[in-house]
Simulated assay, not measured.
Amino acid sequence: MFRSLAKFVLAVGAVLPLAGQAQDVPSIKLGYAKCAHCTPLSLTPQHAANVKLEAIGFNTGNDVLTALLSKSIDVAQVTYLHYATALDKGFDVVAISGQVNGGSQILVSNDLPIKENDWASLKKVIAEYKAAGKPFRVAASRGNAQDIHMRGAFAKQGIDVNKDVQFINIPNPSDHVQALRRGEVELICSVDPFATQIRQLGAAKFFTFPYDQAAGKLTNLIVTRSDVIASKPKAVEETVRSIVKVNDLMSTDKPLFVDTIQKVTGLDKAIATSAVENLYPDYRMYRAPAVAIGAMMRDLKYIGSDVSAQIEKNMDYRFLEAATGKPKSALGY
């Protein structure tokens, strides 16, 4: 009996240090939206080391930001627009990495005489609607990158979103296709893969990629809070390292990118394959364009204050530098 007890004590003693070591591995909850360029983040847990990383999908970027601010998650994939908006409202957000850019398309109703990439034809139709006393309805998911891409592109062409057209907010991008089918809007700026789905289903026709504005193709940004950085700096670094690894995979393995979009969104291969052509993996954080985006958002009255100083101050390049071995001057600073 004593020998059995001794063996049990020895066995427990051997296991306890391992349990203690397991507890020493920090954990991070990473939230991302279920759009095409966000889906690669679902692969980060399997490419993470020295951190217990959990990737959680949300319907929209707004939902992800809310989860971060409520401390339900530790790290969030949002957009440059979310970043500027959060800073304008005084929230504690710190940008730590880029991710994937692009993914925006402006689509118009099939029966409108609007030609691809022809802004003159769009403005002519808008003028005709105004003359007839009808609202020309344009839609996006307010608060996402596509919304600001559309507004910026419109402003550059002399179209006032608040006066010349009627803006319709459709929060969930997966609902965009039905809004077009029901004739609830004349134009929509949607996100891939849903934009590609709309085109392939024939629910609308392509007008343009809305990248001719201050934000360019910039879309996704990875952010966290200062308390997470203070309490888990190494875990944040390892999270960024996993994002960099996955980004490199997406850049070299398009079939994997397509497969990942399919798994997360449930859309078919043809849609995912086409969507990938409008996506640009890039883990850099672009400081000067981020400031320009903030200025554009203020001009468009999307935010109420000048957040230029906060945008620069709250971009922390330490984790990208550690993950890539590159100086911040090579990472978008």
Rank of each mutant, 00 (worst) to 15 (best):
I243F: 00
P233R: 13
N220L: 05
L201G: 08
D248T: 11
S226E: 01
K254V: 09
A203T: 04
K234R: 11
I222Y: 02
V228P: 07
A215F: 07
T196G: 02
D253L: 04
L221T: 00
T208C: 14
V236C: 07
Q200R: 13
I222Q: 03
A204S: 15
Y211M: 05
K205M: 12
P255F: 02
I198W: 05
P210Y: 08
K217S: 14
T224R: 02
L218N: 06
P233D: 13
D253R: 13
K217N: 14
V240D: 04
P210M: 05
Q200D: 09
R241V: 03
I198D: 06
T239L: 07
R199C: 02
D253P: 13
Q197P: 03
R199V: 10
E238G: 01
A235K: 12
F207W: 06
A230M: 09
D227T: 01
M250A: 08
K232M: 05
L221N: 01
T219N: 15
I243H: 00
L249S: 09
D212R: 12
E237N: 11
Q197L: 08
V223C: 08
A195N: 02
F207M: 08
T224F: 03
V246D: 11
N220W: 02
I198Q: 04
F206W: 15
T219A: 15
K232G: 07
K232D: 06
F209I: 13
D248A: 13
I229Q: 12
I229H: 11
L218I: 02
S226C: 05
G202A: 11
I243P: 00
L249N: 08
A195W: 00
A204M: 10
T239K: 04
L201I: 12
A214V: 07
L256C: 07
A235R: 12
P193L: 06
S226Q: 02
M250E: 04
A195P: 03
V236Q: 07
L201C: 05
D212T: 08
T224A: 00
A215T: 07
K217G: 06
R225L: 01
P210C: 07
E238K: 08
R241K: 15
V228A: 04
